[in-house]
Simulated assay, not measured.
Amino acid sequence: MASVPSTPRTEGDVMSAALASHGFPSFLNEEGGIVYLAVPVDPETKDAEILLHPHIKIASGEDADRRVDEHDAPWVASLYGADLEFVDTIYGGDETLGIEDDSRACAEAVVTHAAWWRAGTLPAPVPAPAERLVNAIRQAGPGAFYDAEDGVVIAHRGDVAQELAVTGAHLVLQLHRASDGWSDGFTVTAWAPGLRGDLSEVAQVFACRGLLSDELVERGARAVSEWLSEPRPSAGALLLAALAEQGIVPVRSGSSYVVPLLPGVTGEAVWSSEYLRISGQSWAGDHVPAAHIGWAISRHPNPDHANGNPVCATVYPTPLYPARGECATDSANTAAYVADRLATASH
């Protein structure tokens, strides 16, 4: 391996200078067509022995030796043991940073993890899906960290210290795998102290199945951020606003909304008349907009005189699944459908 020149000329030079400011050497190496910087966990390790001891590989795409103006991918630093086995990704890069700031942040991560390794206090590796969720939540505003003991991601208000996160209101993101009997994905549940101070589950805030696409990760992070916001936005508020624009004021019934089909029906009389019930297709409760997967409308005719129970049928949408766009758009379309049904019923 050849030592990186001290005068910055390439992206590797910039990264090397950031490491050198902390007393860490770095050396260009190539493996399988990928050019990267090799950094020893112990700064005293000799050049020729780096790969025989715990070390860190730093790459930008597939080449760490391009001109600075050709740097188009953030740095990624990965920790390897003396057996050349991958241990963990210790720095995932930040596309919003320029090469100078990205290099400084990467160097700080290297120094921190090298110190942990030498002290024998290296944190447990964070699974890649969990790391994606943590990063997305932090970018959305709240705080987040991976709890290695329970294997979950904890999200909390940004102004709450990590060590105090689970003592107050917080969210738990449980990652699922196909081997667990779940088709991958993750669920988000909200927890808060009860009257006696003990923690209890408040609501399921978000859930998804399948491989984690960027869209699912972003939606989940947005749902977390909305749930922790003050005041908290709600899908129901967007629906009520859309109905109000159509001149419709529904009756609240639990987590759903009831609209009489015939004019002049008010109060308790609504339950003995024909009406439409609008409910969220997700879990019970007034969900946040980012967790919205669609409104469903059921039509309830006059009660069945045989047993006093209304016989209902889903009339919107057809088919019931899958999700239909953003909450605001779906709410507007739902309100327009209700207005059309009311206009038809009045004739």
Results as ranks from 00 to 15, higher is better:
residue 154 I to V: 15
residue 186 F to M: 10
residue 177 R to C: 01
residue 156 H to R: 04
residue 172 V to I: 14
residue 144 A to I: 09
residue 241 A to R: 13
residue 245 E to H: 08
residue 260 P to F: 05
residue 239 L to C: 02
residue 251 V to H: 13
residue 157 R to W: 10
residue 194 G to I: 02
residue 244 A to C: 01
residue 180 D to S: 14
residue 187 T to D: 15
residue 245 E to P: 01
residue 180 D to Q: 15
residue 231 P to L: 12
residue 253 S to Q: 12
residue 153 V to Y: 02
residue 252 R to T: 11
residue 254 G to A: 12
residue 262 L to S: 13
residue 160 V to A: 02
residue 147 D to G: 07
residue 212 L to D: 04
residue 167 T to M: 11
residue 202 V to G: 00
residue 225 S to A: 15
residue 144 A to R: 11
residue 216 L to H: 07
residue 206 F to Y: 15
residue 207 A to F: 11
residue 189 T to V: 12
residue 191 W to N: 10
residue 179 S to P: 00
residue 140 A to D: 03
residue 144 A to M: 08
residue 248 I to D: 04
residue 236 G to Y: 05
residue 178 A to Q: 08
residue 250 P to A: 08
residue 148 A to C: 02
residue 194 G to T: 08
residue 245 E to F: 01
residue 233 P to N: 03
residue 179 S to E: 14
residue 218 E to F: 00
residue 195 L to S: 10
residue 161 A to N: 07
residue 158 G to V: 01
residue 223 A to S: 09
residue 159 D to N: 14
residue 210 G to Q: 06
residue 199 L to F: 08
residue 197 G to M: 10
residue 170 H to F: 12
residue 224 V to M: 01
residue 225 S to G: 02
residue 142 P to W: 12
residue 243 L to W: 09
residue 232 R to A: 04
residue 191 W to R: 15
residue 247 G to R: 11
residue 162 Q to M: 14
residue 154 I to Q: 05
residue 238 L to I: 05
residue 192 A to E: 14
residue 244 A to D: 14
residue 165 A to R: 09
residue 250 P to S: 06
residue 249 V to E: 15
residue 174 Q to K: 12
residue 225 S to K: 08
residue 148 A to S: 15
residue 253 S to G: 07
residue 227 W to H: 14
residue 234 S to G: 08
residue 155 A to L: 04
residue 265 V to E: 03
residue 233 P to Q: 09
residue 251 V to K: 14
residue 201 E to H: 04
residue 185 G to S: 05
residue 148 A to P: 07
residue 233 P to D: 02
residue 245 E to L: 07
residue 183 S to N: 15
residue 261 L to I: 01
residue 216 L to V: 12
residue 259 V to A: 05
residue 248 I to P: 01
residue 245 E to Y: 01
residue 157 R to P: 00
residue 139 Q to C: 03
residue 261 L to Q: 12
residue 262 L to W: 03
residue 242 A to F: 02
residue 175 L to E: 11
residue 156 H to K: 04
residue 150 D to F: 05
residue 232 R to Y: 00
residue 231 P to E: 06
residue 264 G to F: 06
residue 238 L to E: 13
residue 165 A to S: 13
residue 191 W to M: 12
residue 226 E to D: 01
residue 241 A to E: 15
residue 169 A to L: 06
residue 216 L to Y: 11
residue 173 L to P: 01
residue 144 A to P: 02
residue 187 T to I: 06
residue 259 V to D: 05
residue 178 A to H: 09
residue 204 Q to V: 06
residue 227 W to E: 07
residue 163 E to Y: 07
residue 267 G to K: 06
residue 231 P to K: 12
residue 161 A to P: 00
residue 162 Q to S: 09
residue 195 L to R: 13
residue 144 A to T: 11
residue 246 Q to D: 04
residue 205 V to D: 03
residue 175 L to T: 11
residue 198 D to N: 11
residue 167 T to F: 14
residue 166 V to R: 15
residue 174 Q to C: 02
residue 213 S to F: 03
residue 179 S to D: 13
residue 208 C to G: 04
residue 222 R to H: 01
residue 262 L to H: 09
residue 192 A to N: 07
residue 141 G to T: 10
residue 232 R to Q: 14
residue 161 A to K: 14
residue 240 L to A: 03
residue 191 W to S: 07
residue 241 A to C: 00
residue 233 P to K: 11
residue 217 V to E: 02
residue 255 S to N: 14
residue 213 S to M: 03
residue 181 G to W: 06
residue 187 T to F: 12
residue 261 L to Y: 05
